[in-house]
Amino acid sequence: MNNKIENILNSIDGIEKANPQPFLLTRVTARINAANAAPENIWYKIAFYIKKPLVAFSAIMLLVLINIFVIKSIKHRSDLENLAKNTNNQRYDFAINVSVMYDIENQEP
């Protein structure tokens, strides 16, 4: 097996150069001309930055943090609302009681 592996390792010794397709210069020149002719598009620039992994990951993390913040603030607000509602109920009960007590005490016209 060792011989086989050594043969494989030596299999690209003396490798000949491969050639690209003909008329490479023409194709490169065409690409240069196309790049020069293309107007600067702001959306391409934006897409270029957005698709960078660091930017995309940061944006996702920011969205997650905003979501956590919003969920927490909604929960906090609903706790406050519940507290206020309970207080109002207690006040209402108390008001009825007071009224009843007042009525009992003032039976005479």
Binding site: N7, I8, L9, S11, I12, G14, I15, E16, K17, A18
Partner: peptide
């Protein structure tokens, strides 16, 4: 690889 000799093509592909 187009530059590898025919008798070594298989070995070169593995490499």
């Amino acid at each position: 690889h187009p530059g590898v000799a025919l008798d070594k093509k298989e070995d070169a592909a593995v490499l």
